[in-house]
Design a protein around this nucleic acid. Structure first.
Lengths: 114, 114
DNA sequence: TAAATAAGCAACTTTATGGTTGCATTTCCT
DNA sequence: AGGAAATGCAACCATAAAGTTGCTTATTTA
């Protein structure tokens, strides 16, 4: 309800959208296991072209779930946990709101109101 | 790493994708506060048409974040917490994987290897 | 230095998404 | 009954997203 929440809606949606693709979830899975991988390495597991994987990495990079740094001729990508943690916290908030809403409903039903 | 994970990748991506839109996050916010709302009511806060909101509700419904039931002439929508909790748990898993990967890296750096 | 490796850039195709408008249907209320 | 309210359905449009191919650039390495 605070301004902090409403102002972040766009950014949160962007992070969720970035996670909303099977290929990107697989990239995320590999990188979150701690491996630092080049684009070519990340392409290996998939049925896609290197360029397609590159595009997916840019999407993840734009919302800072991942970042790459140039090492010689290769671009090494690494996981960045902050946005994922923020999304986890947001979902926890939603969950808590729901629980307290249920509690209120329960209290209402059990009150004189019925 | 288990089969359970890999088989769910598509579904997880679908849920994240459903959450990856500002309008749908706002609908989710309202519904997760426990209010059961008709489509017309949910449309009120927005600058969109009723039909646009309906489409967004269908997207959320397809991944079971929400469900509607017909009550007379109106369609009352309600939040469903299961998928959101599952996504929360998935993000927790990712987060733990990352933490343990960092621990392993730290142990490695501090070992004879350097 | 020349071949091979890794990646970036750009154009293009296809399909999904978000949104609209117009009209039909169901339900409620007087 | 008959009008108002709440939806549903379908066609349509515009833009974004996912993926491809072809070509260029930068770095290794033999």
């Amino acid at each position: 309800m605070s301004a902090k929440h409403r102002s972040g809606t766009r950014e949160r949606a962007a992070v969720f959208a970035a996670l909303g693709d099977e290929t990107r979830l697989m990239l995320l899975a590999k990188l979150s296991r701690g491996q630092q991988c080049s684009i070519a390495e990340l392409t290996e597991g998939t049925a896609l072209t290197r360029q397609a994987v590159t595009k997916h990495l840019r999407v993840l990079e734009r919302v800072r779930v991942v970042h790459g740094r140039r090492m010689g001729r290769e671009n090494i990508f690494e996981f960045d946990p902050k946005p994922v943690n923020e999304m986890k916290e947001y979902l926890e908030l939603v969950s808590r709101q729901w629980d307290s809403a249920l509690s209120r409903l329960k209290a209402f039903v059990e009150s004189d109101a019925n």
